[in-house]
Amino acid sequence: MTPPKSFYDFTLQFHQDLDVVHPGWAETPDGRNQIYEDFRQGYGDQAVRELATFCEKLLADKEIDLGSLWFKESKADWVIQDEGVRFLFNDFLRWKTSLS
């Protein structure tokens, strides 16, 4: 499955924001939510919806190795294992739901 442009934009923004957000970003919803909000502000609500749809499709496939997808397709230099990508996508989807 070819990722949409929003995936590339998100992973690039994600990587750039890691340097801006405090070191405990991964353990705090506020740190992660700020990354998601930065993406929303930079790329718009349509990109958020497009990325959410892509995340839902990927998470529905229990066999897909999201870590490999991230490593192969991501614009970030940061390597994340399968479990971490699943957590990130689920967390992003929870955040998106909270916007409604």
Rank of each mutant, 00 (worst) to 15 (best):
K75I: 00
A60T: 06
Y8L: 10
P3W: 14
S74K: 02
L93E: 09
L58W: 06
L69V: 15
Q16D: 07
G42C: 00
H15N: 14
L51V: 01
A52I: 02
S6P: 02
Q34L: 14
C55A: 15
S98V: 05
T53C: 08
K72T: 12
K62A: 11
E37F: 10
S74T: 02
D30A: 12
V79C: 07
E83A: 15
D9F: 04
W25E: 02
C55H: 15
T53L: 10
F92D: 07
A47S: 12
V48H: 04
R94T: 13
F39P: 01
G67T: 01
F54R: 08
D30T: 08
I35K: 05
R49P: 00
E83V: 14
D77A: 06
L51D: 05
T11A: 14
P4G: 15
L69G: 04
E56C: 10
L12Y: 05
R40C: 03
D45C: 02
K75E: 11
L88Q: 03
Q81N: 10
D9Q: 12
Q41G: 09
D82T: 07
E27I: 07
L93I: 15
E56Y: 10
I64V: 15
K62R: 10
L66V: 05
A47T: 02
K75L: 11
P29G: 12
E63G: 04
R32K: 13
Y36W: 12
E73K: 11
M1T: 09
S98W: 07
E63F: 00
D61F: 02
L88R: 01
